[in-house]
Amino acid sequence: MLTCAIIDDDEINRLTLEHYVSLTPGLELKASLADGIAGLAYLREGHTVDLLFLDIEMPHLNGLELLRLLQDPPAVVITTARHDFAVDAFELQVTDYLVKPFEYGRFSQAVERVRQHPRPSAAPAGAPEAPANADVFVKVNSRMVRINFDDVRYVEALSDYVNIVTAQQKYIVYTTLKALEARLAVFPNFVRVHRSYLLNTQHIESIEDNTANLKGGYYVPIGKSYQESFFKGLSKM
C-alpha cells in the first residue's frame, strides 16, 4: 500500500487527483491540501507519505520551493500546467512530471514508476543518499531523456557540454562536467579520472599505461593528478 498526499491550489485539479487516487488499487490518500504553505506545515508536523502529488505554481510558496525546504522528501510526482519547469524539477530528483490535463492512464504510469523505484530511507547526516535506481534525467536538445547510468561507460567534457557514452549511443548534454559530477556523487562507481573525464568503474576490463580499457572497446586516460586517488580507490573495490 502506497500512501500519498496532494498539494495543489486548484480545486478542480485536486478533485481530479483525488478521484484518480480512489480508482487506483493500493494507493491511499492521506491529505489533500490547497497550497504550498499548508503542505509544508503538514509534512513538518511529522506526517509521512510515500508519494506526493505536487503542483508547482501556487501562491506564497511554489512546489519547487517547498521541495527544496524538505530534508527528506517522499517520492514526488509533479502535476503542473507548465512544461518549462521540467529541468528544475528533475534536478530535484522528482520521479515523474505530469503536464495538465493528463488522463488516468498517464497518472497510473507515474504511480507504477514510484512502485518500481521507491525512494530510499534517509541517509545519516552528511552522507550522500544512495539512489533507489541508477536512472537520471538529463536534457538532450529540447527533450528530457531518462538515462540509466549503470549503462554509461564514461562522461567526457566538451566545453559547455558533456558527452555521455553508453554501450548503445552517445548523448550530448548542455551542462558542465563539474555539475554532472555533483549530481552523480551518490553513485560511488563514478569517479573523476581526468579533468575531462568521469569514468564508470563497473565497466573497467583492464588498465595499461594509465589508460582504462572499458567494455565495448572504449579507452579513457587517467590524468597524472588523479592517479594516486584513483588507484587507491581501485584497490578497495
Rank of each mutant, 00 (worst) to 15 (best):
E103K: 08
T166N: 09
H19M: 11
Q109V: 04
T79D: 03
L29Q: 06
A127T: 12
A41K: 12
R106H: 06
Q116G: 01
G233W: 08
E18G: 05
G46Y: 05
D9W: 03
D96L: 04
E112L: 11
L158T: 04
E28L: 13
R106E: 09
S235T: 04
T176L: 06
R153Q: 15
E129K: 12
A110Q: 08
A157P: 01
I12D: 10
Y197A: 08
F231C: 15
P124L: 11
Q169M: 12
M144P: 11
A182F: 01
N200E: 09
V77R: 10
P101E: 06
I78Q: 05
H83S: 14
R192P: 04
G105H: 03
E112K: 13
V193Y: 02
R115Y: 00
V186D: 06
P101G: 05
L33R: 07
V136N: 01
E205F: 00
D72S: 15
I172T: 13
N189R: 13
P101S: 05
D55H: 02
A81P: 02
E129W: 04
G36L: 02
R192I: 05
D88L: 08
K215C: 03
Y171E: 08
P73C: 11
L198K: 06
E103Y: 00
Y171I: 03
S229A: 14
Y20T: 08
N213A: 07
V165Y: 02
Q93A: 11
P59A: 08
T48W: 00
D55T: 07
M1D: 13
G216S: 12
F187H: 13
A127N: 02
I172L: 15
R113Q: 12
F231A: 14
V94S: 09
D84F: 11
T16H: 00
Y42V: 07
P120N: 14
